[in-house]
Design a protein around this nucleic acid. Structure first.
Lengths: 106, 106
DNA sequence: TGGTTTTTTGGTTATATTGCCAATTAGACA
DNA sequence: TGTCTAATTGGCAATATAACCAAAAAACCA
């Protein structure tokens, strides 16, 4: 693999990796509905605020979310909603796997 | 997050995680063109055959690729080509980041 | 059967990720 | 200024990933 290709793949991998975590996927879905502050997301996810804050700063670092300060709160919002498109294919993959499981039992 | 939701997010994360690696992204792109055996992919990626074999079995385990035995060789192919759709959005994210970098310099 | 080729698996080491707690920072306001 | 509240950062321990080499498996052929 050429160095240039390698770098492009690494850049892509960083974005996908940022999405590839249960809590972060959930947060991305939540943020699609409306912007939310860290405490709200921590509550929704069921994890420590510090943990969620780190997840959010990772998502922000790759450009998937954005934030906005309001008083002592920080509101995060989905910056590139196209990431939601991932789910369609992911669900298709999971469905296909499921169908094969079923075929094995029959 | 409810237990059910948690499980669905974990399933999704497994699929995305399988994609989230430079070599694996490259292999997925290669496999889009045509099926390939392990040695070919190892050559193209520039890694040890055993390393590539492990990457492939991970991709297979989540249902992204499929394999077919032919003599001593094993040919892998893209089973769910919709994963290629990811790239469109990923590139958009990277482009947006780049635009912002440029704005900072100007 | 023995030898060759291709792939997978096991084992090890190095690195990265995750989650929590504790401490710090930042803003609002009495 | 002191004291809230909200969020971030640092640090640590547990777990997961990744790469390589060596060894085992699988399929072929002489």
């Amino acid at each position: 693999m050429e160095a240039k290709t390698q770098m492009r793949m690494e850049a892509r991998a960083r974005v996908l990796k940022a999405m590839a975590h249960p809590s972060r996927l959930f947060m991305v879905e939540q943020l699609n509905k409306k912007e939310r502050c860290v405490a709200e997301l921590a509550q929704a996810v069921g994890a420590d605020v510090s943990t969620v804050s780190k997840h959010l700063s990772l998502l922000k670092s790759v450009g998937i979310v954005d934030d906005r300060k309001q008083g002592t709160q920080v509101f995060y919002r989905l910056k590139t909603p196209c990431v939601l498109e991932f789910f369609g294919c992911v669900e298709k993959v999971l469905q296909t796997n499921l169908q094969e499981q079923i075929m094995l039992v029959k």
